[in-house]
Structure formats: structure tokens, C-alpha cells
Amino acid sequence: MFSKTAFRIFEESIGKYHVKDEVDQSFSNPYPTDSIEHLLYRKNWIDTVQWHYEDIIRDPEIEPAAALVLKRKIDASNQDRTDLVEYIDSYFLKKYQSVEINGDATINTESPAWAIDRLSILALKIYHMNEEATRTDASAEHLDKCKKKLAVLLEQKTDLSIAIDQLLSDIASGKKYMKVYKQMKMYNDDELNPVLRKTAKS
């Protein structure tokens, strides 16, 4: 099943990141550039780095200048994340382009790649909640709470994985069809963001 492969790659990416556990470490992708595995690994690496950006920026003692630099990195990371989702959806569009769509076919509320995006984030939640549930310096109460949360996350993983695989199966059989609306983010555009537009003309 596709979801099983994707989650395995997400775990591989997360594990590799945490060998050094540094947001500025170099990145290398072990999968061929023209493969879906390459896109999945890259997608999760972006998510993993951003996860840790979000931890760092919440440091109450962070210097304002450093926080601003980090905010810019988070913005760039969000853009990269969205780009990767589009690349993954493009893969599925190409893969299923010759499928004959049933007359009563329906469209899903989200594209396959956005569901996979949720699975990538979920892999990170599971990894870090497992860390919390197995800490040796935490109270019994903390460990118990985290174990219960971890159980819920694992149940969510099962449900989301089934939903992703069912969606892909329905698209492959023509029961559902997919459309991709390209991102129309306005805040990064010099013409659409009034602040950037004003700055560019001054």
C-alpha cells in the first residue's frame, strides 16, 4: 500500500535528521530524483526541519533579531512545503491521467498530496510523542499522559493510512477524480501583498 511506503520513508527521514538533530545540517536525498520516493523524503525533511524551527522560535529568551531571521526561514519553509505538495500531486495526476472517470465519480475534499502531508506531520508527532512517553527524567504522570496520546496518534495513523489508500484506489478505478488548484498565496507576491507592493515602489 502507498501509505505504508510513504510512512516508512517519513520515518527514515526523521531518523536521519535526528542523528545530528541540527536545523542547519546538510541535506542529501538517498532516492533517485525522478522518483516519488525522492519527493516524499524531501517533503518530510522540510517538515522535520520546520518542526524544530517552531520549537526554537518559542524560546522565551530568543533575541528579537534571531527570531526575525528564524521567522523568515519558517516562511521559506512553508513555501517549500507547499511546492512539494504540488509536485506530489503532479505525480498522481500524471499516473492517473489515462483513467476513465465514471459518470458518477466524485471529488475528494483534499487532494492525495495534502492527505500525505498530514501523514508526514503525523509521523513527526508520533516520533516526538514516543520520545516523551519513554523519557527517563519525567514523572510517572507525564509518561502516562504521553502514552495515552501516543495511542491516539497511532490510531489516527491507521485511519489516515486507510483513507489515503482508499482514495488512491478510488482514483485509479475512476470512482473519484482529482483536481489540483495551484497555490495562490498572496503574502509572498510583490503585487498582491500591499506592504510588499508599497516597499517595491518606494
Rank of each mutant, 00 (worst) to 15 (best):
F10Q: 01
Q97Y: 07
S90C: 15
S120D: 07
F2N: 04
R72S: 12
I107C: 07
S26P: 09
M184Q: 15
W51G: 04
L122G: 01
H52G: 06
D24V: 04
T158V: 10
E191P: 04
N78H: 15
D165M: 03
D21H: 11
I36N: 05
R58L: 11
S202D: 13
Y41A: 01
A6R: 00
I9Q: 00
S90A: 14
S98D: 08
L93S: 08
D59Y: 08
T33S: 15
G15W: 08
A67I: 05
H52L: 13
N29G: 02
C146Q: 13
A113D: 07
I46V: 06
P32G: 04
L122K: 04
D83P: 05
T109E: 15
H18E: 08
T158G: 09
A140E: 09
L40D: 04
S161V: 07
I74S: 00
L167P: 01
G174R: 02
A66T: 03
D55H: 13
D137S: 11
M1Q: 14
K175P: 07
S77K: 04
I56F: 13
I116W: 00
D137F: 02
K4N: 13
Y187F: 10
A123Y: 02
H38N: 05
K185P: 11
D104A: 15
V195W: 10
N78K: 13
